[in-house]
């Protein structure tokens, strides 16, 4: 199966690979996996005093689409507020990267990682966590 140019670009030049200190109060961490293929993804955000996401990092061990989805997600997260980040949908990732149907679960994984990281941040800072809804 051929990957789209954007997937290849994110795969070859992944943005924001790395880790943040998960014990830092201003950092939210989301670790998720896809049991059907065994891909694992860690996505972290760092929120500044003004409530904006100043940094985002990821580490993904999996296929090109999973790496591209998380790389793109970190790019989109930066500069957003926590609530704005909540609005990022897997369908937007599918559209941007032109993912084929068999790779949609990679984008779902990235959305899951974002939401888990956001809730981790909220929990650490005494904010109400956002209930998860079902998948598509």
């Amino acid at each position: 199966m051929a990957y789209s140019d954007k997937v290849v670009d994110h795969y070859n030049n992944p943005r924001n690979v790395g880790s943040l200190d998960k014990n830092d109060q201003t950092v939210g961490t989301g670790i998720v996996g896809a049991p059907e293929c065994g891909d694992v993804m860690k996505l972290q955000i760092k929120v500044d005093e003004g409530g904006l996401i100043e940094d985002a990092k990821f580490k993904t061990f999996g296929c090109g689409s999973a790496i591209a989805s998380s790389s793109l997600a970190t790019e989109w997260l930066k500069g957003k507020t926590v609530d704005e980040a909540e609005e990022i949908k897997n369908t937007q990732i599918v559209e941007e990267l032109n993912l084929p149907p068999v790779k949609i679960h990679c984008s779902v994984l990235a959305e899951d990682a974002i939401k888990t990281a956001l809730n981790d941040f909220r929990e650490k800072n005494g904010m109400p966590v956002v209930e998860r809804k079902g998948h598509h």
């Binding site: 670790i31 998720v32 996996g33 896809a34 049991p35 059907e36 694992v40 580490k59 061990f61 899951d112």
Partner: peptide
Amino acid sequence: KLEENERTPPPELFEEIFEAQE
């Protein structure tokens, strides 16, 4: 389907996986 409810295995396992992969 398995993927419906098995997305978050035990955190300790994931920690070990990330350590090994890294």
